[in-house]
């Protein structure tokens, strides 16, 4: 236990922050709590936590503002806690540099999974294993970046350049939600609105790599927000 990760919980509801604290403690994390946005900013500066769990509804300043301020000088992973139905808020937070989001109400397992992913992909950790991996494997799906080859099981999958671009983009950000706008900008370039094209390409990719496109295993949809490539398959 020499290197416990420090998590900053920014939440004004005592009930929720209590139970999150209990879970984190039980799972060997160190945590600090902030109740207001200003407190959150100053604590981020002084403690430099490994991850921030940020509730968007704060008593003093808007959570978005907190996010913006932190992103001005820090790349600490931020997981936004938001209510269901506020898709626009989530997209906005992701576009402002949040790493992930979690929807209230959430279960223990979900919360821990997000925190794990967040910490694993934080720039700090990434620089440690600086050698970019040349391949990726999730379940049956394998991507070889050098050979530009995608296989499912033994079968190689033939993808169009755009489809390949999308799948690589998602795999490089594995576990992270990428918003529609972000993917479009990365694949097609700025100033385009190819949301329809993105959907069609995504449907094609799924038909090629998923067993049942209506029950995708590898790339899941976040309705109204974007897509995420899963890190580990659900059992």
């Amino acid at each position: 236990m020499e290197n416990k990760s420090v998590i900053l919980i920014v939440e004004d509801e005592a009930g929720i922050s209590n139970f999150i604290a209990a879970i984190l403690k039980a799972n060997d994390y160190k945590m600090i709590k902030a109740v207001t946005g200003k407190e959150a900013i100053s604590m981020t500066a002084s403690y430099s936590p490994d991850l921030i769990l940020l509730d968007l509804g704060l008593p003093d300043i808007d959570g978005m503002e907190v996010l913006k301020t932190i992103r001005e000088w820090s790349t600490i992973p931020v997981v936004v806690v938001s209510a269901r139905g506020h898709e626009r808020e989530k997209v906005e937070a992701l576009d402002l540099g949040a790493d992930d989001y979690i929807t209230k109400p959430f279960g223990t397992a979900e919360l821990l999974a997000r925190i794990r992913t967040g910490i694993r992909h934080s720039p700090k950790n990434r620089s440690e294993n600086a050698l970019e991996s040349t391949s990726l494997r999730i379940g049956e799906l394998a991507i070889d970046y050098d050979k530009r080859l995608v296989t499912v099981g033994e079968k190689s999958v033939h993808l169009t350049p755009i489809e390949y671009k999308i799948i690589v983009l998602l795999s490089k950000n594995i576990g992270k939600v990428l918003t529609h706008d972000y993917i479009i900008k990365e694949v097609w370039g700025p100033y385009t609105n190819e949301i329809q094209a993105l959907r069609v390409n995504m449907a094609n990719i799924r038909r090629k790599i998923e067993e049942n496109p209506a029950e995708p295993q590898y790339i899941v949809t976040q309705v109204g927000v974007g897509y995420r490539m899963v890190e580990e398959l659900d059992v």
Partner: peptide, 14 residues
């Protein structure tokens, strides 16, 4: 907004 029907169904089922 235009949505892919399969994505919506998939999300609901998951």
């Amino acid at each position: 907004t235009p949505e892919a029907a399969e994505e919506i169904v998939a999300e609901a089922i998951s």
